[in-house]
Design a protein around this nucleic acid. Structure first.
Lengths: 212, 212
DNA sequence: TACTATACATGCATGCACGTATGTAAGTTA
DNA sequence: TAACTTACATACGTGCATGCATGTATAGTA
């Protein structure tokens, strides 16, 4: 969007320069992937939007694929630190899944929300390294949700029904689709994400407490 | 996949030949768009999978864009005739929305299920004719669901809450995401689509009647 | 059977984006 | 300040898919 513009006299050490450029390029790439997907992502645009040229990009990243892989890792990390972590603060598995649904809605209010979905829709089944990385990251979330659902079944907070893995896929698909379609329309994104999650999981409707 | 292979002695009139080639190419293009999206769709592959070459394709369709637009129209028509129609057979709006959720799950069991989502994720916001066509088609479905929700609110079968349009977007996003993630795992796709829809709409859980 | 039109195949030209090689400026160490 | 390294820009080559132009076979017509 805007150049990094080392404001006059702002003296930077080399590692600082490098880190600044790198994160600017990564952020720009994340926005680009979210909007345009992988093959429609133009590195010229990524660099320009970050205030650089493709030369700077190729100096920091080996190629388009490596750049995308780093974006995927970055998204997964931030997602875990902001959403996945919510599962640890609750004692009950059903509560954890509800909290994650709401948390995901909040997480997706930023503009890089669609990175994972965009890449998955575009590259799944394509034997593409980036597609595989996304599938693996999504797989980890699915596994975590599957574990939570199984635990909730054992503790009785989630009623019996389809296999935990199938239910986890349904839960995640519903929450992700809902949140993306709502496009950060706070506070309803969070409220409806909870309602959708409860419905899929077979939980009773909540007493409609306010959004956090 | 396999060539059309005019089995020996099978005498065809010109309009018949044309129509046969045309639908074979359209079907192949629909599968391709569903799997690879628009820009990753290779016309060479489309033609080959239908048993022809790109020459045949360019003889029937002006260009890649025109081909994609026809696929979008075709998908919208079949969706209305198989899913949208379900809304007409019910007296109550809430019933209609539930029926559509289940119907969409059934509709999406075929391999062209992801055409609309794939194109929307790839081209939305891009000022691309195909993207616009998809947005318009989706917009019509959203409008229909919005109308149904407003009617359900008036008749009391859907409880008050967020604006009908917002709720329609949430409902559709949840159902679509859920169904795609479940990848035609009958009969749970249908069952969970209903549960998700009920949750988002604020309807009580159903007595879990069997899938149709 | 000759002659036209339609359905389809094959070969070429263009454009576009990636990746790389080279050049220049800014920072680091002596 | 002189040498050296790192950060970035500019310019070029390559591959690939689209679209078009031309060639061939099959169907319709007299």
């Amino acid at each position: 969007m805007s150049a990094v513009a080392t404001a006059q006299g702002e003296r930077l050490t080399q590692p600082q320069r490098r880190a600044r450029s790198r994160s600017a390029l990564l952020e720009s790439a994340a926005r680009g992937l979210s909007r345009y997907g992988y093959s429609n992502l133009l590195l010229e645009r990524v660099a320009r939007d970050a205030g650089y040229t493709r030369g700077a990009l190729y100096h920091q990243f080996a190629n388009k694929e490596a750049l995308a892989l780093e974006v995927v890792s970055w998204v997964e990390e931030t997602w875990y630190s902001e959403v996945g972590r919510l599962a640890l603060n609750t004692s009950d598995a059903a509560e954890a899944l509800i909290a994650m649904a709401r948390g995901h809605a909040v997480y997706c209010r930023r503009d890089v929300a669609r990175v994972m979905m965009a890449l998955r829709v575009e590259l799944s089944g394509q034997d593409h390294p980036v597609g595989r990385a996304v599938e693996e990251a999504v797989g980890r979330v699915v596994a975590e949700c599957t574990r939570l659902i199984a635990a909730g079944r054992r503790s009785g907070s989630i009623p019996p029904g389809p296999s935990p893995r199938l239910l986890a896929l349904a839960y995640l698909g519903a929450v992700e689709g809902l949140v993306i379609n709502l496009a950060a329309k706070a506070p309803f994104d969070e409220l409806l994400a909870e309602r959708g999650a409860r419905g899929v999981l077979g939980l009773p409707p909540s007493p409609e407490k306010k959004a956090s």
